[in-house]
Design a protein around this nucleic acid. Structure first.
Lengths: 166, 166
DNA sequence: GCAGCACGCGCAATAATATTTCGCCTGGGC
DNA sequence: GCCCAGGCGAAATATTATTGCGCGTGCTGC
């Protein structure tokens, strides 16, 4: 269990950096209750160990002209491994597709897409996604509004879990 | 249109910070082709104008013990505005629910959930989500694997769009 | 129980970065 | 053509990151 390698301070660091990835190291150190140098060492260690995979600015999609967000449920004709990875590689090459998850159940993949407007999404849908070999069915749902969009994981749940098992 | 207020350099800054939110300002300035002080001023302006809504560390959910990710399609009995917002507020209060989007079509909401294991998700499902007033139907799909998970928006599409319209 | 060792902390010093100040240039309006 | 607003970059300063090092603590083996 990888999580057991991390102590409370490490987990606090991760939680803080998930909430504000540009916090200065001195501020971070203050919040987690140690001095700056060991704090920075911990951050570097977490980065190198892969607990932190990167840092990203969260941009306002609407303000930048990406008015529509769409979930696309995709069913494939063949679920052979080679066909699955072929489809995944297609998804990786499409900029409009931001996320691609393989699911259990009746639908094989769910895609989260971002597009400037409906017509450019339609163009992608009819011109790219629907013409892709092995794609059997696509059901799209437009996002009307977004009530919650939190990145990452709920550290509260993690702490609760660790405290009750202790 | 808000996007027209931004020039090429601003858009480059946003793209770079989306890809690496912890890049130093000097590195950023070098990449976008201006010197550090005006670069920092632009970043601050973008932050204050809301183009940048925040910065986040991307953490490895699996390594942190969040083994399962689930999409839940939720149908409500009533779609009156008050009932919709009531459900959204519930979602905001559930840590396991990371995203909550209202959709068009047959399903009212899609939730993206993260949980340590299947049983804790089941507990949430049966003990919280399914017992919530007005929730008429829930269909869940477990994520088998994730082929792509890019944050934010595809700036390539934006640039292409701006260049062809010019 | 006790010596030794490994680990992680914090202090202090140094290097790098962020931030402010200011003068210059350019481009638009009159 | 002149003036003004805005944005740039050089230099100075403040803040932050980073390294080196000595100290204390807690395990290990005896």
């Amino acid at each position: 269990m990888a999580i057991t390698r991390l102590d409370l301070i490490d987990r606090k660091i991760l939680a803080e950096l998930q909430a504000d990835g540009r916090m200065t190291n001195v501020e971070l150190a203050k919040r987690v209750g140690i001095s700056a140098p060991p704090c920075l060492r911990r951050v570097r260690t977490l980065e190198e160990a892969g607990y932190i995979k990167g840092y990203h600015a969260e941009v306002d999609a609407r303000e930048l002209g990406f008015e529509v967000q769409v979930f696309a449920m995709v069913g494939l004709a063949s679920q052979a491994e080679a066909d699955l990875t072929a489809f995944e590689n297609r998804c990786r090459a499409w900029p409009l597709v931001r996320e691609c998850h393989m699911l259990n159940g009746e639908v094989d993949f769910i895609l989260k897409c971002a597009a400037p407007d409906l017509s450019s999404f339609q163009r992608f849908l009819t011109g790219e996604l629907l013409t892709t070999p092995n794609v059997a069915s696509v059901k799209t749902s437009l996002v009307i509004r977004c009530a919650k969009d939190e990145p990452g994981v709920p550290f509260e749940v993690l702490e609760e879990r660790l405290s009750t098992s202790a």
